[in-house]
Nucleic acid binder design. Sequence first.
DNA 1: ATTAGCACTCTATTTTATTGAGTGCTAACA
DNA 2: TGTTAGCACTCAATAAAATAGAGTGCTAAT
Lengths: 352, 352
Amino acid sequence: MELDVRKFKILEAVIRNYLQTGEPVGSRTISKDSDLSLSSATIRNEMADLEDMGYIIQPHTSAGRIPTDKGYRLYVESILAHKEKALSTREENIKKREKELDAMEKEYSSKMDQMKDIMEAVARSLADDTNYATMISSCMGKCNRIKFVQLSRLEEQKLLVVIVLEGNIIRNKVFNITKNITEDSIARLNMLINTTVTGLSVDELERQLGVLEAQSGSQPMLREVLEIIFETIRNADDVQIVTGGTTNIFKYPELCAGEIARDLITTLEDKQGLTSLISPGVPEEGAIRFYIGEETPVKAMKDCSVVTATYELSDGMRGTIGIIGPKRMDYEMVVETLNNIRMRLDDLFRKT
Amino acid sequence: MELDVRKFKILEAVIRNYLQTGEPVGSRTISKDSDLSLSSATIRNEMADLEDMGYIIQPHTSAGRIPTDKGYRLYVESILAHKEKALSTREENIKKREKELDAMEKEYSSKMDQMKDIMEAVARSLADDTNYATMISSCMGKCNRIKFVQLSRLEEQKLLVVIVLEGNIIRNKVFNITKNITEDSIARLNMLINTTVTGLSVDELERQLGVLEAQSGSQPMLREVLEIIFETIRNADDVQIVTGGTTNIFKYPELCAGEIARDLITTLEDKQGLTSLISPGVPEEGAIRFYIGEETPVKAMKDCSVVTATYELSDGMRGTIGIIGPKRMDYEMVVETLNNIRMRLDDLFRKT
DNA sequence: ATTAGCACTCTATTTTATTGAGTGCTAACA
DNA sequence: TGTTAGCACTCAATAAAATAGAGTGCTAAT
């Protein structure tokens, strides 16, 4: 059978109506609400065809139709196709977002040491805007470079190591020393470290570790400090995931039924199961991905749609930002919001 | 009417039974399960009395009895009274916890810069152990003292300020400068700052701010740096609250009914509404508090019990750790666990 | 003071009836 | 040939009625 223009229009009408109401859509509704001026009987015939083709389905005989995953996908792809034209229709929306991000930027710079806090703030604000649950993965990529290291004495037996990575990610660590060490030694250590490790990535550092140790016979502390730096970078490279607005799930009755909400929220709180959503293969720039229903790699989300976008820092470091909502989510709005925030995030991280 | 020993024993039996089953307890059950060897009829008479006294209640005529808030409170207080005797009955439990905390300690020292991470780890582990939801407030007390400040150049136009507070709480901040500054000036600034602000609290710093500024005519940067330090301390003083195991709520059917779970989890995710649970007045050392049902200051928890304990750092800084569960929570276990973790937390923070 | 026995109450569960939205199909129509 | 009106049919959702059983309160006997 052929999916002609009229059929597509009807499908579109069904989906749009269902997005709003969440209730199965009947032929009469379409007949009245759409601008096709066709009787309900005709719509009925067409809908039967659409059902045969697998785009819509009846929850039971004598109910209206609801979109299938396949139907949603067609719809989503048509949106994406039409997107270029109407790219910035919602000016006021964008302005609003810019304001928010400006505010966020301020806060960001005021506690730059807490990368996680920023992620949480973004996740939260995004959730508030969209009314869906959100997740953000921290930037990963095993190519963090060391920018600066500072060693200071904190107490008689304690040293503080401050390590700054490319992108101004800062880590601290307090570290106990057994034998006494003079201020002078500390200064020399500082010098030595900064001349040798600055600009190195983990890989490079790992490779050079042997060499460095060999030439450090006179500096007994060096080995331990390097060990710490090493571990720190590895830690910074760990992918962290934060979530926001998980309780927005409760706003959608179809997700509250049975165990669904419970499983979803548990999964979101757990964060473990979300890794499959981030970095799925292709690093295509600016790619927005849709997982509709059963398409999702996370089984707790089989009744949801998930939309993810990638934000990118210099050097191939990238993170994922995702929105989790009911299948009948407002895809247009989500795509727009996501595009928007992604661009702004790129700026935010790159410029500092 | 008099609450004699027998009545109390029956009340205790009812409560214990209800804690386990969550179902109303009938007279026959008590008659069989308790060691009182009384017929169900006798128990019935006594239970009617207990109901008159307000310790138990029937959900409806012809149902068993369930404890009222008043009943729970009596029970909880009797537990507390008997606690001293049997303080460390559950050796194996304590040992397990010590192991866990040792592991945590390791992690703790490995990313000491992320106070929040530790809190989250503790909250989570506590939730896993108890099967209830947990919350921890960070340590507060407007008496953080500055221990050490380090200023370093990061880029041509960027300085890094590292501030270490009493208790080795570390904050970083990157800060843009407009005019160039020589390495020499930075070194002098470092010296000046460390000699003047070390050991000061916010209050003291605030008082001395004017004086310092007056004598800093020659150091144009000083003012900005001090401003940053100031703000940083204020920020560190902010009470943070983290929660863990919020989804444990789902394990108790009586909390899943209707909107209860929804409201609870929303409140826990929000963290805003939890402030009323922390630091409620009396700073009595080691106090464990019970909020049973309607007693709670958080309205979303009116169907829960909340147990809180205080952990203490040097200098009157203290935080709260709380457990949120159904009214029929295992109070004995919670008290024990809480006592245990509180002591260990005191150590954990004090020693570093 | 304790207990056995019985009538009574009230929830929870199952069963049955009722309603109404929406379909599929047929026959008439342009 | 495509469109439409009309009608019988299906099925979920709601309401109403019937049933079962757990547990009580009270009375009378021990």
